[in-house]
C-alpha cells in the first residue's frame, strides 16, 4: 500500500518535473542561448494552457468553445498562440537591451492574468474550464498516469533533441556569438533582431506547449492554478542553477528545484496552521535568496555551458 502510494507520487512528481523541464528548456532558448530576459514565463504558459483547453473542451453555455477537437490540435494551438503573443512584444522590445523586454514581459503576463480573470466568455473567469480531455484518460489510474508520464518525457525528449541540433547548427553558433559580443551584435544590426525574435518566439512556443501538457494533465484550469511570480521565478532558478546555456543543465535544474520545492511544501504543510501561512512566505523568501546565492557563488550553474566562454554570464 505504502509502496504503491509512493510510486504513484513519484509518477506524479515526474510529470510535473517534465512540464517544468520544458519550461526551463524554453527559457534556455531565450536566456541561455540568446540572452533575452523573459520575466513573464507564467503568461506564455497560461496562454498555452487556456488555448489548448478551449480548443479541446466540451461546450459550456456562455463561453466560447465546445470545439472538442483532438488533443493534438489543442497542443498545436497552444504552441501557435503562445508564439503569437510573443511576436509583437519581441518586435517592439528586442531592438533594445533586455531590460525593456523584462518590463514588457512582466506587463504582458499581468495583462494575460487580467484577461483570464475577467473575460468570462473566453476563459470562464473564476470558474475556469473543466472537462478537458486527457490522453489515455480512459485507462485505470496508475496506467493512465504512467502513460501520461511517457508522453511528457517524449515531449521533453523531442524538444531537447531539436534544441541540441539547433545549438550545433550555424544558427546556434551565431546566437551565441550575438549573446557574448554586444559590439559584434550591434554591427550585424537588423539580422540580429530577426534572430533574436526567432529565439524569443520559439522559446515562448515551448512554454505554451508546457502549458498545454499541464492543463490536460489536470483536466481543468482556473486563474489560481498559476501564481505568475512564483512560477516564473522557479523556472529562472531551475535554469540558472542547472546551468544556463546547457540543455541538460536546464533539465537537471528542473529536477533539483522541483524536488526541493515540493519537499519544503510537504514540511510547511505539516506545521500548525498559524505558522503554516508564514512558513509559505518564508519559503518564497528562500527562493529569492537562492537565486542571489547561485548568481554569486555558482553563476555558471551545476552543468556549465560546454564552450569555454570569454565572459561569464
Amino acid at each position: 500500500m505504502e509502496l504503491i502510494g509512493l510510486a504513484n507520487y513519484a509518477i506524479f512528481m515526474g510529470i510535473l518535473i517534465g512540464i517544468y523541464a520544458l519550461l526551463a528548456l524554453g527559457l534556455n532558448i531565450q536566456w541561455g542561448l540568446t540572452g533575452l530576459f523573459n520575466a513573464g514565463i507564467a503568461g506564455f504558459f497560461a496562454v498555452g494552457a487556456y488555448a489548448s483547453a478551449i480548443i479541446t473542451s466540451p461546450h459550456v453555455a456562455g463561453r466560447v468553445g465546445g470545439f472538442e477537437l483532438p488533443i493534438v490540435v489543442g497542443w498545436m494551438g497552444a504552441i501557435v498562440f503562445a508564439g503569437l503573443i510573443a511576436w509583437p512584444i519581441g518586435k517592439v522590445c528586442l531592438r533594445f537591451r533586455s531590460d525593456y523586454l523584462a518590463i514588457a514581459t512582466i506587463g504582458v503576463a499581468e495583462i494575460i492574468r487580467l484577461v483570464i480573470k475577467s473575460e468570462d466568455w473566453l476563459t470562464g473567469s473564476s470558474r475556469g474550464i473543466t472537462g478537458i480531455p486527457r490522453p489515455f484518460g480512459e485507462l485505470d489510474y496508475v496506467a493512465s498516469q504512467l502513460a501520461y508520464l511517457g508522453l511528457v518525457i517524449a515531449a521533453v525528449a523531442v524538444v531537447y533533441f531539436l534544441l541540441e541540433r539547433q545549438l550545433k547548427s550555424p544558427w546556434g553558433r551565431m546566437m551565441r556569438a550575438i549573446r557574448d559580443n554586444e559590439a559584434a551584435a550591434a554591427a550585424m544590426g537588423k539580422q540580429i533582431e530577426a534572430r533574436r525574435l526567432q529565439a524569443f518566439i520559439f522559446g515562448a512556443a515551448v512554454m505554451g506547449l508546457a502549458g498545454a501538457l499541464f492543463v490536460h494533465f489536470n483536466r481543468s484550469i482556473t486563474p489560481e492554478a498559476i501564481d505568475p511570480m512564483i512560477a516564473t521565478f522557479l523556472i529562472w532558478i531551475m535554469l540558472i542553477l542547472g546551468g544556463s546555456g546547457n540543455n541538460r543543465g536546464a533539465i537537471l535544474g528542473a529536477i533539483v528545484i522541483w524536488l526541493l520545492w515540493s519537499v519544503s511544501e510537504m514540511i510547511t504543510d505539516r506545521l500548525p496552521t498559524d505558522v503554516a501561512l508564514q512558513a509559505k512566505y518564508i519559503r518564497i523568501f528562500v527562493v529569492g535568496l537562492a537565486l542571489q546565492l547561485v548568481l554569486r557563488f555558482r553563476p555558471e550553474g551545476i552543468l556549465p555551458e560546454e564552450q569555454a566562454r570569454q565572459t561569464a554570464r
Binding site: 530576459f37 521565478f233 548568481l295 554570464r313
Partner: peptide, 14 residues
C-alpha cells in the same frame, strides 16, 4: 553584464 543585476533585482522583489 548589467542584465544580471536586473535579474537579482527580481529576486530582491520577491
Amino acid at each position: 553584464p548589467k542584465i544580471l543585476t536586473v535579474m537579482a533585482s527580481l529576486g530582491v522583489a520577491l
